[in-house]
Design a protein around this nucleic acid. Structure first.
Lengths: 212, 212, 212, 212
DNA sequence: GATGAATGAGGTTTCATTCAT
DNA sequence: TATGAATGAAACCTCATTCAT
């Protein structure tokens, strides 16, 4: 088999195995087996286990970065926003395994543990989904997929909490975060008129791809 | 020292060590040392290493769940929403270590690796923040902390992508996700009138604390 | 068992195993087994396999260095020379295993190989011994243990050859070595009057132990 | 390329690589590379790695053995002695790599370790050289290259110690060794009149080359 | 013949867990 | 209770050797 093909096969296999088992639980032998070769062969293509993971992460970063297009206010901004969402979503759908390596809750721990953590999130989502469905019946929450709204909210909070958890949080900062998050839930942050741009065509710049 | 105190001390120590080093990199001896006892002593209070982590996760779940209050449409809904956001945020601020165990990107892998993955997210956030700041100058993005908007968006997408990545995604589903996410970014999902509810009192549910 | 005792035991065991099997062929598990403990225990006392060897070499160097006494021309020089020979010999006899690690022909290779190399030396010694015995019968070689003379000569040549082999050897250097070695075989290099020194006492230095 | 030439080239390459890296540290691939061929090719000429080394040792043994000439009491004995010394020295000078394989201190261990052991010997030699130079100033040691005397003595002792270390050494044996070694250092073992033989020609044996 | 991809036995090292003191 | 010495399973990685091309 051609050297580069084998390398790609190994990366694909590794991505599968890392996603399934987590980094630590994935044995180099498993990766080899998933690609149909012996342990030693893996080391003909990669310096060590870590460098395989490293390469997967780098590659994913490149794919996401290059999928994203910087906004051009002249063009159809709503379309561009959707394009970007769609593009990033596409990367995942095309390669869910790599994605999970980076995005999963608790990507490093072993399967039994991930189950526990996943159930933590599932519980949270269930709880919030029900709440939102109640809200929809009451007319307090917009129509739409409540489950999606829940994921959305949990993810947003999670990311913000990670950031918040890194350093000390004054009570003033805390209140600002609360207000900001609330406002987003109520109004979003993209202006509605964005979806129907009125700027004269001749002033618009060209759509340009993101520089890597 | 009283048995329960020592147990709590060990949990606190473990939380610190897990947050700093990640689950795998945290040695049982480190946990003991952080609590000022020897390795063997840890096993007098916990069956094994995993059960320490397990307990930390459970405890965090309980604390978050009980911080959240189900909506009561009778009351000040906006206030309740903010209360919940504030409550969850409070859990983190009070115990950032436990939080990081559950919420960090790549919680299980070793420090060198976390750095890499963190930089992945940092890169993403930087990219998006700049974009949003551009948008603010153009009047396309609402005033406010662009960095926060970025974290918010990344988190939301991350969570949704995790969900999407679990199974096959038809192109129809994909487009629905794109539309829904976009709509949320533009309008939020809480109705603006939520903050001043007008629904008749008799249809409102009672405020009840979350069952654990 | 006391920690230091175990450490000494492990060093002794390692010395035995290294001497028997050679450095590479000696498995850490063998060393443990020779000391009656498991593999892992070895690592409680030494960072790694190499540091065990390193410590053995250092210790031997110290023992030999401190056994040697610098000459003092005041005293009985012959006695001092013999003392030093005796002292170094004593170190070996006391700890033949450590000694072999440093002194053996081909100390690193595996047993089968050492057998071959040893037979090389044995062949050489046999050859020379017979020659010298012939010489004794002819009156060309002094009375005494011919086998010892042979070992003596082979060792001397080996050491000199190692030195010579390190760099380029001009034909002039070569001839000097030949002459010098020959002269030593004929006259030795210690003056015979050494054994009964006559130098005036006031010019003699003090006997001082070797500095480590 | 002719089969035998390639074989010779490989032996030469192996000798270089073994001498530089030591037996264990020398990879078969290195040997191939040093000869300008691929790893697999080495196995077309040699059964395995060990047999390459084995052949080098055998070849060296043959070369040394055949360089040596048995003494003939009729001839110029001093000249013959020098001839033999010169011959063995010549083998080394012609092929220092092979020589080092057999003669080096600690030939099997890795480079870092050899450095340590070499410094052990260097230390010993330095110590002894200085001592002998002192002796020369005092008139106790014959004129000449003190460094050479030192190498000579260390080598001689080393060889004798190896022998001694193989079995138990009674205190009687020990004293005999001390006396013998001392005597050699003082008088050498070749009779001085050897250099000017007076035995009647008719009693002399024929000069015959050593049988391999 | 020549190559170099593939193999997998085998070695070093780590560390969760046990248990005698 | 507390300790920490001891254990040994398990994982990473190397490299001599094979063999299809």
């Amino acid at each position: 088999m051609a050297k580069l093909d084998r390398r790609q096969e190994l990366l694909a296999a590794a991505s599968r195995v890392f996603a399934t088992r987590g980094y630590h639980d994935a044995k180099v032998e498993d990766i080899g087996a998933a690609a149909g070769v012996a342990k030693g062969t893996v080391y003909l293509y990669f310096r060590d286990k870590r460098s395989i993971m490293s390469e997967l992460v780098d590659s994913l970063f490149v794919r996401i970065s290059s999928a994203i297009v910087r906004f051009d206010t002249e063009g159809d901004v709503a379309g561009q926003a959707k394009h970007n969402i769609r593009a990033v979503l596409g990367v995942v759908v095309d390669d869910p395994d790599s994605m999970r390596i980076l995005f999963d809750h608790a990507s490093g721990v072993d399967p039994a543990f991930r189950a526990k953590i996943d159930s933590f999130y599932a519980g949270l989502r269930q709880l919030l989904t029900e709440s939102l469905e109640d809200g929809q019946r009451e007319g307090l929450v917009r129509e739409g997929d409540a489950r999606l709204y829940a994921s959305f909210t949990i993810g947003a909070m999670r990311e913000i909490l990670i950031e918040a958890g890194r350093g000390p949080v004054s009570s003033r900062m805390r209140e600002e975060i609360v207000e900001a998050l609330f406002r987003v839930l109520v109004h979003g942050y993209l202006r509605s008129e964005v979806s129907a741009p009125t700027t004269p065509p001749e002033t618009r710049a060209k759509l340009r791809p993101r520089k890597a």
